[in-house]
Write a protein that binds this DNA or RNA. Structure first.
Lengths: 208, 208
DNA sequence: CAAACTTTTTTTGTATACATTTTTATTTTT
DNA sequence: AAAAATAAAAATGTATACAAAAAAAGTTTG
């Protein structure tokens, strides 16, 4: 078990519902809960705000944002444009070892006992393994940010929406296409992988 | 004169060359220069790192990143995709007053005596005024981040590249198209506005 | 009773001091 | 002399204490 930093612990607790969505969070509250002073708490809050896991709430204080169909729509639309492009840039450099790395990560996702936050992080690691060979710092960083923010919505996809098995299989199919150098097809699959996940998520959010 | 916060003061000093690109920056150095303790300095550094104005440098310390053609290429490519989309979402809501606001901001850009950081901020305010009516928090925030990061490269555009007048005129043309409800044309102009600024910037960076 | 003002309480922001980590310089060993 | 190990210095990370600002509660006034 790796030692989670404060940022990940707060994210994990948000996903667990320890902090209700819409609730405002006080520095002292986190300070006491995690047994640290307010200084590292403040650093953590700054980071979580910049990643969309918390939002400013008036002049003082932050709150946990409500999950929102429009936010999800924007996140998945941007992902559907940026990630196929990044994957395209990756093709010319990606090695068998790097593909193997993605395969390994995807296998870890079969584990039934993962916490939501771990599923989210593994899911991103899978995509990151495919994008890293492109060596495009800035595009990669933007994509990382979008994926990280989207983890907030994973509760639905692994819960009421049950997209998990579909997603896992699409990952495997994509790896086969990449190994066979069917690049166009891999890009198309990635795009539909994202578009469809986004559409069903948005539909679900609008329905509740 | 508005009171600049620490983040803006550091950005301004980076643009002025007070901190050379590639140089590592120490917390205490900033603490002494700006006359505050290391606590607010740390907050500032966290924010500047998340905005691409500073990058981590080993396990301890941050440095001012070198300006880089590939970073510029990524920033402008993403902008050229995301901003026309966002403008398109804005059309159905934008009012004459909001267009007037953009016009006012663009006029301020005529001032010859602006510091680089101010030009950068005004330039973003112009674009932001056009995008805000769309009311797409998440897409807007990503675009804001890209624009804010791109300000680092403005020194070239107002200096050796002298794209300023072109840019100003394109802004004015775009406002006319929007007022006349020639939405497709406005979108197309915005895209080429960004693509061409990006291309000349990238070419310049590759040439030096 | 509602609106505006004042006081109190809470919360955030910052300085100082200390602990921990990282880096650099020095010494030791082969 | 080069590499490894050790010691010193510097830098970052964090706790405590206090100052400033914001929110909440209470009071006054129309």
């Amino acid at each position: 078990m790796v030692k989670l930093d404060l940022v990940d612990r707060v994210k994990s607790d948000i996903l667990k519902g320890v902090f209700a969505r819409g609730q405002t969070i006080r520095q002292q509250e986190l300070s006491e809960r995690y047994g640290v002073s307010r200084i590292p708490v403040r650093d953590t809050l700054t980071q979580l705000k910049s990643e969309g896991w918390l939002v400013k709430c008036g002049k003082a204080g932050v709150k946990v944002p409500k999950l929102d169909a429009q936010v999800a729509e924007d996140l998945y639309w941007m992902r559907s444009i940026l990630e196929p492009k990044l994957l395209g840039m990756s093709f010319e450099h990606i090695t068998h070892e790097q593909i193997g790395k993605a395969k390994d990560v995807n296998l870890l996702l079969d584990n039934e006992h993962l916490a939501l936050i771990e599923k989210g992080q593994l899911n991103w690691q899978f995509h990151a393994a495919l994008y890293a060979p492109a060596n495009r710092e800035t595009l990669f960083e933007t994509v990382r940010r979008l994926n990280t923010q989207a983890i907030q919505y994973l509760g639905f996809q692994y819960g009421p929406m049950a997209r998990r098995n579909v997603s896992q299989q699409e990952h495997k199919d994509m790896l086969v296409l990449i190994e066979n150098r069917q690049y166009r097809d891999a890009q198309a699959l990635l795009e539909s992988h994202i578009v469809e996940a986004g559409m069903s998520l948005v539909d679900y959010l609008k329905s509740i």
